[in-house]
Amino acid sequence: MAKIVIVDDDPDVVGTLRECLVDEGHEVYTEANGLHALSTMLHVRPDLALSDVTMPDMGGVPLLTAMRDNAFLDEVPVIMMSATPESKVADQCSGYVAFLQKPFTMKSLVEVVNWHLSEAAKPRTLRR
């Protein structure tokens, strides 16, 4: 069982993702913006984080930057999610391990999450 933080301001998206990952046996924490997620992650270091790019208060890009600048969170794999194409997201940030373009299937979510959790012990390649 892995600890996963989901960060998205859409309660329907959060609910669906949470349900799917809990069904997979994971311990899931949810937050509606990056600022709250950062606080949660400093208390419960997750094994993986899923973050939307655009959210109020603190979006996914500044959240990812804050995580990479924090020694406690800098190695946590982050999967970015957005309706915006990855090419535009990649222009704004680096340091994430995977990208899911919304809408995506729960099957693709589970595959990406499980693959990155299995790779967590290995050195990872960050998207640049």
Rank of each mutant, 00 (worst) to 15 (best):
E86W: 10
V7N: 09
A90T: 02
D23Y: 01
P62D: 09
P85T: 06
A2F: 06
E75N: 13
V110N: 02
T40C: 14
M106Q: 06
R124V: 05
D57I: 14
P11L: 08
E86V: 08
P77Q: 12
S108Q: 06
V76G: 11
I79Y: 06
V76Q: 09
E75G: 03
M55P: 05
L64H: 09
L63C: 09
L42R: 15
S108I: 02
C20V: 14
L48F: 06
V76M: 08
S108V: 07
S108C: 01
E31A: 15
C20Q: 12
K3G: 03
A32R: 08
E75W: 04
A71R: 13
E31M: 14
C20Y: 01
R18V: 00
V28T: 03
V78K: 09
R127A: 12
S82R: 10
V113L: 04
H116T: 01
V110S: 07
L64Q: 12
S94V: 01
T40V: 15
H43W: 00
N114S: 10
L21K: 08
M81A: 14
D10M: 08
N114R: 10
H26R: 11
K122W: 02
V13G: 00
T125S: 11
H43Q: 14
G15Q: 10
V110G: 01
M106R: 02
A2C: 10
P123N: 07
N33E: 10
L35C: 00
C93P: 08
P11G: 09
M106T: 03
P62R: 12
V61D: 12
Y96I: 08
R68L: 14
F104Q: 01
A121F: 03
E24C: 13
G34Q: 06
V61N: 13
A49H: 02
I4Q: 08
T40W: 00
L126Q: 07
W115S: 10
E27C: 07
P77L: 09
H116E: 04
C93R: 07
V14L: 14
R124L: 12
